[in-house]
Simulated scan of single mutants.
Amino acid sequence: MSKLKWIFRGVLALIVALLLWYTLPQHDVVRITEVYNRITTVSWANSAFYASPDSGTAEATNGRDIRFISAAFSDGAPMVYRNEDTGWIWPPYFKYDSSNLQAVASSLKGEKWVMVTHYGWRIPILSIFPNAIAIREVSGPDYTYFPWLNLVIIALLLGLAFWIRAMWLQFRERMVDPAVAEVQEAGDRTKGWFRRLFRR
């Protein structure tokens, strides 16, 4: 039972870590090489990683018309971002300016170095792209950014988790444990009564 408990905790921790990794903002320093729109097929395998159709994405007969931003890292490795409004759905970025962001990306295309703030993963085999949230010019490819917001969010979540655990322990100590003790005591009394009954 103890092993099952630790397996469950490990799986839960892994799910939470993956959810945070996907949802929290990430920052890439890249050069923008191309800005374009493309009809993209969104299937059951990757639909969870795209915005809902009512979040500003135009529908086409064979897919969606989605904005994309192609970029390259300092070592030449390519990166492609989608540029979709998130609306009021998860994750809670409340992004409604994808058209403006596309214009910003177009104006910064070329030899300029920019920091692209995004969430999500790039998984080529499933045609999954991270969603760009903000773009701003930086001094060069060596520019570094410290993720203060991520640390604050993680600290708040840890504080909430510890608070919930403390409340549960207090509830168990005051309500659950006494109730369990009463049930066990009643069971012991019942067993004792049956023993005495059958001894006669």
Rank of each mutant, 00 (worst) to 15 (best):
N131S: 05
W90S: 03
I89E: 14
Y96L: 11
S127I: 06
I123A: 05
A161K: 02
V114A: 04
A77W: 10
S107K: 12
T144S: 15
T144Y: 13
V138P: 00
L156M: 12
D54H: 09
H118C: 06
T117P: 02
T40N: 02
Q102N: 11
L108V: 07
V42F: 01
W88Q: 05
I133Q: 06
S106F: 15
S107G: 03
A155Q: 04
L156I: 11
K112S: 13
W148Q: 05
Y96W: 12
I153E: 02
G120Q: 02
D142T: 10
M115V: 15
S47P: 00
W163Y: 14
G76K: 12
A105I: 03
N83A: 08
I125K: 11
A51G: 10
R136K: 15
I133P: 00
T57R: 00
G63W: 03
P130F: 07
S55M: 08
G56K: 03
W113R: 07
P92N: 09
S70C: 04
R38P: 00
F94A: 04
S107F: 04
D75L: 14
S74W: 09
T117E: 14
I123C: 09
I89A: 14
Y143S: 13
W113H: 08
L156P: 00
V104M: 11
I123S: 11
I69M: 07
A45I: 14
E84G: 01
P53D: 02
F94L: 07
